[in-house]
């Protein structure tokens, strides 16, 4: 996914990617990423868990405004099925 992200950014559209594999992301080097230690198939969390999905999407979108350093990987540290999303 990071490859596609890099190609879009090269066309001068800012991008952020959610990633579940930090080491892969560190190798591919997309411009902005949000890392979650979540299982494959769950980049936005659990089914019908609206607050969780919303928080993760807002985190990613906000990263588009706040990240200044290319290659930054945000790590909010939400623990799978344990973090309480208000």
């Amino acid at each position: 996914m990071g490859l596609i992200q890099r190609i879009i950014e090269q066309r001068k559209i800012p991008t952020i990617g959610i990633t579940l594999q930090k080491e892969v992301t560190m190798t591919v080097k997309p411009p902005r990423a949000l890392f979650l230690r979540y299982p494959f198939g769950h980049p936005l969390g659990e089914a019908f868990h609206v607050r969780q999905q919303r928080t993760i999407l807002v985190d990613a979108l906000t990263g588009l405004e706040t990240i200044r350093e290319p290659g930054t990987i945000l790590t909010p540290g939400y623990v799978w099925r344990r973090h309480v999303f208000d």
Partner: peptide, 21 residues
């Protein structure tokens, strides 16, 4: 991927969020 980037540009996308599997 370049074709998608080109389409996004043409369609006025000003930022993109990518999600994996």
């Amino acid at each position: 991927a370049p074709e998608v980037a080109e389409r996004l540009l043409r369609e006025g996308a000003e930022a993109v969020v990518l999600t994996p599997a």
